[in-house]
Nucleic acid binder design. Structure first.
Lengths: 234, 234
DNA sequence: CGGTTTCTTGAACGAGGTCAAGTTGTGTGG
DNA sequence: CCACACAACTTGACCTCGTTCAAGAAACCG
């Protein structure tokens, strides 16, 4: 197995496994961790909350993996609005591009650690090792699935459904069920769901009044009735 | 070059080219055609307007390429609504899945011809030939880019902006500029943009009143002022 | 603590949805 | 070739949900 993707593979993704997973099943468990040594082509970097990892239009010389913290990828519109495309948590890979430049910006939502991978060295490795291409492929397929799910979410009608989907998505990625610590602001959530901050706040308040959730802190959500959320989400 | 992707590669995508394109530039021109013989693993199939190519939940044993006509991929929601994820025209590849089953349905919008590729034979080829994996990769990257663009579109506010984006997207894929023959119904457009049929109709009428477009037939759009659309789209 | 950011809540407004006719277009059979 | 039927599209009137604008409350941080 090549070294340059060893870190990418740290959550149960040996290249050999990925080879069989290519186009067939990419649902490798994301919670298995194996020790590894960081290869030359990767660099671990800290980012403080709110700082920019890369900007729209930057040369896409690297791609990234979240070690800890949360990252948002987003686009700024000419009218000042912002659209968030995705949130990335520990284990997620982001920042691959078809073109030469990044089409979106990426920013640290809270303090986080990010591993960056040189795109050039990956390309070189890929030419030698089919397994590496397949591993990348599975990451891209996962991005594609998420992006499709996000499109579906945005197209679907009302605010309650969007927030139900959002909470369920966050739960599925959170360490514990029942309690989610949202790291992002209401504005972040709004920009992700195509709503306003106020509507997000109102809808969460309504969920609380209905006994579906409890908010011990503004960003700590207790799921009292996940089934109700799932019914909304449908 | 392996045979099983020869047809996939018919629009300027030799595997060798794709190898260099991997992760760097996938913007191969889609209008160059080279002669080829159909390999064993692919089958050309006609579909009549409205018929189903595959349904959500079907085993994803194949993926597909549009030869002629238009295909929509969509999801049916429990409340009876329908969300269209993408339209595919001649040259587009669709239907790859991370999992074992299709997450969306695909239907013929009008009469069309589709080439189907066996996923198994591709997997076998991929194990032998890195170039093939890279070629698939570039198709998936293109899907990812489109899906992201669609998310952005859906999140962005008003109906006029959505329709402007939609018309520009259709122009970019249409043979001639200035005149677009929309193949899909107003309902299809609505389900793609997260609007209602009525709003689509009203907005197009408004564009016509503003002299931005002309509608010689309901589905034939003449772009009188593309700049105005681009300004809306921003 | 005091200052600042984030979040919540209220009231009025408006874009888009809903419901309901009409109109245009298209294909089919007399 | 026309008449009829059916589907697709347009338009209008009303209503609803989410936005906007504005104020106040809560949480966070030096």
């Amino acid at each position: 197995m090549p070294t340059s993707l060893a870190v990418l593979a740290d959550n149960g993704f040996a290249a050999a496994q990925a080879a069989t997973a290519f186009l067939s099943r990419t649902s490798a468990p994301a919670d298995r961790f194996e020790p590894h040594s960081a290869p030359r082509s990767s660099t671990i970097m800290p980012f403080i909350a709110g700082s920019e990892i890369y900007a729209e239009g930057d040369q896409a010389v690297s791609f990234y993996k979240v070690v800890s913290g949360v990252v948002r990828s987003c686009k700024f519109l000419s009218d000042g609005r912002r659209q968030i495309d995705a949130f990335y948590v520990a284990g997620d890979v982001f920042g691959f591009e078809a073109g030469l430049q990044h089409g979106l910006s990426a920013e640290a939502v809270n303090d986080c650690k990010i591993i960056s991978f040189s795109r050039r060295s990956l390309e070189a490795g890929v030419a030698k090792d089919a397994g590496m291409a397949q591993e990348m492929f599975s990451y891209v397929m996962r991005s594609l699935e998420r992006s499709r799910a996000h499109s579906l979410l945005l197209g679907r009608g009302n605010a309650a459904q969007k927030l139900a989907s959002f909470l369920l998505e966050m739960t599925s990625r959170a360490p514990a069920d029942e309690v989610i610590d949202l790291v992002m602001t209401r504005q972040d959530i709004a920009d992700y769901l195509g709503l306003t901050m106020e509507t997000v706040s109102r809808t969460l308040s309504q969920f609380e009044r209905d006994g579906v959730i409890a908010l011990s802190l503004a960003r700590r959500v207790h799921l009292k009735n996940p089934t109700a959320l799932r019914n909304l989400d449908s």
